[in-house]
């Protein structure tokens, strides 16, 4: 068991090392209002310049390492979402972007799942409505192990932070 954990850790490190230099992103809109997409598009602008970090958008799932899903996971997109994920070669990452994808906006009903989790396994969650391009960059760097998560240490309780 310990051996398996160690091997899994080593594999994770190797994958992170490879993805850290070059990561191709396929985006998937599962019923988003397109504001998340507009923030995503800004990542390609000269100001954010995601290429400097070795991140690239690709239209082809076969060329992608990471599936980035926006929207509330409408049921009509289920098959397309699953097929897109299957078309991405292993090892692959899945990132859910925005409050809709994280289950914050739509409740589950006959039209939507309300959260991307229910359709495909998610590795990293990026909250925000919409998340700013810098929040997206942070999330992508967390997904590839290049930045540490910050949110676990935050309590959002000012009194406790003042005491600590």
């Amino acid at each position: 068991m310990n051996d398996e954990l160690r091997l899994a850790g080593e594999l994770r490190e190797r994958i992170d090392g490879l993805f850290g230099r070059s990561l191709h992103i396929r985006t998937f809109d599962s019923g988003s209002c397109a504001v998340c997409e507009s923030e995503l598009r800004l990542l390609s602008s000269p100001y954010y310049d995601l290429h400097r970090l070795g991140l690239f958008f690709t239209p082809a799932p076969r060329h992608a390492d990471l599936l980035l899903v926006t929207g509330a996971a409408v049921r009509a997109a289920d098959a397309a979402l699953r097929k897109t994920l299957e078309a991405i070669p292993e090892p692959r990452l899945v990132v859910a972007v925005g409050a809709c994808a994280l289950g914050g906006v739509f409740e589950e009903d006959e039209l939507v799942h309300g959260r991307v989790d229910d359709v495909v396994p998610v590795d990293v969650y990026i909250p925000g409505c919409p998340p700013s391009p810098l929040a997206l960059l942070h999330g992508l760097l967390v997904a590839t192990g290049r930045l540490e998560e910050k949110v676990q240490a935050l309590s959002f309780d000012l009194r406790r932070e003042a005491v600590a």
Binding site: P127, P131, H138, E149, K150, S155
Partner: peptide
Amino acid sequence: EFELASRDREALVKRI
């Protein structure tokens, strides 16, 4: 705070 990305969905739920 804007750097809120997490691998753990539950880590995004804060109790005050």
